[in-house]
């Protein structure tokens, strides 16, 4: 099963290599990885998408926790969470009338044209995996020249406490 794991790590050189090395050294698979700084510049947050049975995922999270530079590991799959990725897609519609169609589809997907040339549009799309896949599928007839895709980033939804729901209902 697929798991999205979020880790807080020390923002130091070599940390990414330690984490990548852990996965490759133990034969685990990284499907996607993204890293960025947090509000605290000494801490980075990584989102790793990996897959495996329960035992493997348990080992992955334990092994990650064991790394000295890892501050916190959360398997977001266990929680309600939001996932996003982004693509930049360069398309070269073969016919003039296709251009309008491309723009219309981009609009439906709440995409943005970030660059255009006489022959191409570069469209930015953000969304979960399904949405991204769907958009790529729709663009295929229009001659996709290039796609650049980010890794997944994910964040847990804020849990609404029962008490606060009750309170709001009472109000």
């Amino acid at each position: 099963m697929r798991h999205t794991i979020s880790l807080l790590v020390e923002n130091k050189f070599g940390v990414l290599s330690r984490i990548a090395g852990l996965f490759s050294g133990r034969g685990y698979n990284i499907e996607s990885l993204s890293v960025g700084e947090t509000i605290d510049p000494s801490v980075s947050i990584m989102t790793i998408v990996t897959s495996g049975d329960d035992q493997i995922i348990e080992q992955i999270t334990k092994q990650l926790n064991k790394l000295i530079d890892v501050i916190k590991v959360v398997d977001l799959t266990e929680f309600d969470h939001v996932e996003r990725e982004m693509i930049l897609l360069k398309v070269a519609p073969p016919k003039q009338e296709d251009k309008a169609e491309v723009l219309r589809l981009a609009e439906i997907f709440r995409g943005r044209v970030v660059d255009s040339s006489p022959l191409t549009y570069t469209i930015e799309i953000t969304g979960d995996e399904k949405k991204i896949e769907a958009f790529i599928e729709l663009m295929k007839p229009f001659r996709i020249k290039e796609i650049v895709r980010t890794g997944k980033i994910a964040i847990a939804r804020e849990r609404v406490k029962k008490a606060s729901i009750k309170k709001s209902q009472e109000e």
Binding site: E58, Q59, K62
Partner: peptide, 8 residues
């Protein structure tokens, strides 16, 4: 003492 040893 090492959690990774358990259930490995």
């Amino acid at each position: 003492i090492d959690p990774t040893s358990i259930r490995k």
